[in-house]
């Protein structure tokens, strides 16, 4: 049981040694090869896409890339995708559907990038299209939130059959800093906001958003990256095996129902 506060978890997630997809992909998948480009505009380094084996099952991997150094982060835009990143992800998801490969999404982003070019190329439309198309994708989709699940920028890779979270990962509609600056006109109150927003894996399990919490080693994933990768691997192998047995129609019906039932109201 993880008794850390949301804020303590955010500190762990922001530890500069926390493993990223660049550590996890080689540890979890074999013969992985990366595919580039959305075929429309360009290639976004903030999202890696490609294929590889998960155990003996060919899968498509879509992963948001945090860097560990400033140079890496410049290249991957601090894991804040542009529209072409989401469109590359959709292109490869459709390819996965065609060849009946399960799709594994590794989510780790502060959010979709907010900038002039992102707006001009339709950030909103790109995310919306992913939400709609992933909902009926005729192959299993599994998403794992590794660190930060930042709002719509995370959701665009998280319309899935099952969502897992690493035990210190967070997933939120708005960054605590953003919420604090709206609520109290003071971004420095992000600690208070992080508790208010209910963003931990346990919170998200209660809301029916998170289906599985993958336990990190004490102190966080960076204390034992291999062990963390093994835990993710075991979960994925199990989930893929389970979901592959579900008939396609049932799979997409269940996926719709998973999201359809989220909402809290009286009538």
């Amino acid at each position: 049981m993880n008794n850390l506060s949301a804020w303590e978890r955010m500190e762990i997630v922001h530890n500069k040694n926390r493993p990223t997809v660049n550590d996890y992909i080689p540890a979890i998948f074999t013969r992985f090869m990366e595919f580039h480009g959305d075929r429309l505009f360009g290639d976004d380094a903030a999202i890696i896409g490609g294929i590889g084996f998960l155990s003996d099952v060919p899968v498509t991997v879509l992963a948001q890339v945090k860097g560990k150094t400033l140079d890496e982060n410049r290249r991957t835009n601090f894991s804040m995708p542009h529209p072409e990143g989401y469109r590359k992800a959709l292109r490869l998801a459709r390819q996965a559907e065609k060849f009946r490969r399960p799709v594994i999404c590794l989510v780790d982003t502060p959010g979709a990038y907010c900038g002039i070019e992102a707006e001009k190329r339709g950030q909103g439309e790109a995310i919306a299209k992913n939400l709609a198309e992933f909902m009926t994708l005729k192959t299993p989709v599994i998403s794992v939130v590794l660190g930060e699940g930042g709002s719509g920028g995370a959701l665009a890779l998280a319309v899935c059959d099952e969502l897992a979270m690493l035990s210190n990962a967070t997933y939120s509609v708005i960054s605590p800093r953003g919420a604090a600056s709206i609520l109290w006109k003071d971004g420095s109150k992000e600690k208070e906001a992080s508790e208010l927003l209910k963003i931990t894996a346990e919170d998200l399990s209660r809301f029916g958003v998170c289906d599985k919490i993958i336990q990190e080693p004490d102190g966080g994933a960076q204390t034992n990256p291999e062990q963390t990768a093994d835990s993710i691997y075991e979960y994925l192998v199990d989930a893929v095996a389970r979901l592959k047995t579900v008939p396609t129609d049932k799979l997409t019906e269940n996926r719709y129902k998973k999201f359809r039932k989220i909402g809290m109201f009286t009538e």
Binding site: A128, L131, S151, A158, S172, L197, F207, F259, G263
Partner: peptide, 12 residues
């Protein structure tokens, strides 16, 4: 909170 984010997926 997160429940509002999920409405994006639900409506889409």
């Amino acid at each position: 909170g997160i429940v509002s984010l999920m409405q994006m997926a639900k409506t889409s």
